[in-house]
Design a protein around this nucleic acid. Structure first.
Lengths: 155, 155
DNA sequence: TAATTATTGCAACTCGGTTGCATTTTTGAT
DNA sequence: ATCAAAAATGCAACCGAGTTGCAATAATTA
């Protein structure tokens, strides 16, 4: 994908999500659109160097906004840093592989659960230590409760 | 399970893993054995108050040791804090549900992937925002490379 | 253009987790 | 039991991820 089409894609996504297109937002979104794998904040900032002056706070606020609007997905790791990837139809929900040696996170094929299970347990090219499935949302208790968000407010 | 049998179970697990049974390790392991859900470090420390004087560093080192020896599993969350649960035959690999409102993490049934997929997509009692599958280990590159662990050393 | 609102940067902070080192406890040989 | 070596623990200081408050700047809109 050319730089220009990435830029157009970013513009379209912001517009579609009803977010005004500032230079920083376009820059962050373009980085994620061009990425082949999930990125953490320090990597995003490194990739932005030279292209765009941007404070780390702005990066966090931008990513948080993108996540709330469904433009990106946030991926938890035990390393402390969270990773981010584009969430779109073309980039559907898929498992991630994180290497315990280099820390790199790569995307696995978005196969069906059945197929994925087979693939996972036949171990293919990776040596697998640990498989984790995390599901997040609202628990029954919080769903039925009138009191709101004492943990983490979402609009 | 009685306090006494938890204590015996903890002793057995430490012995089986070849870890010497100190008072702190027994205390931490007992907390996890009694827990019905994964716990983070701040919760573990709160539950230890009064029972056992223990520094946070010791808690982290103890949990790290347990994880390396396969006694416990570490669960990543986007909240920043990692959670820990007993890893045993009885407590097999299973999905976790984390509530975006209260932050609590609960365990889901360790069903087959196929069954789990059905359950997940029929949504049962939770309102689901996001499903995440994380697999960790060694990538092909690091597996074949002679240079070792520039990221996170594991013995 | 002026006024209002949204975005950004800066500084300071919180919190999870780690490191170095000194002290205490455990272990194991005698 | 005793003593030396090794392991475990605590303390202080630190690091990095992420957040908050507020002032300054940029973008909207009347």
């Amino acid at each position: 994908m050319s730089v220009n089409s990435t830029h157009k894609d970013a513009l379209f996504k912001l517009q579609h999500a009803g977010i005004s297109n500032t230079s920083r937002r376009l820059a962050v979104l373009s980085i994620l659109l061009k990425a082949k794998k999930p990125l953490n904040v320090s990597t995003i900032r490194r990739l932005l160097e030279g292209k765009c002056n941007i404070d780390k706070v702005t990066v966090y606020r931008t990513l948080s906004l993108f996540r709330k609007r469904g433009i990106i997905r946030e991926i938890a790791t035990t390393s402390g840093a969270n990773y981010f990837e584009i969430a779109s139809q073309e980039n559907s929900l898929h498992p991630h592989f994180s290497c315990r040696n280099c820390g790199e996170i790569t995307c696995l094929d978005p196969l069906s659960f059945t197929h994925a299970a087979k693939l996972i347990f036949s171990k293919h090219d990776y040596s697998i230590d640990h498989i984790e499935i995390n599901i997040s949302g609202l628990c029954t208790c919080c769903r039925n409760s009138s009191k709101k968000s004492f943990y983490k407010q979402e609009e």
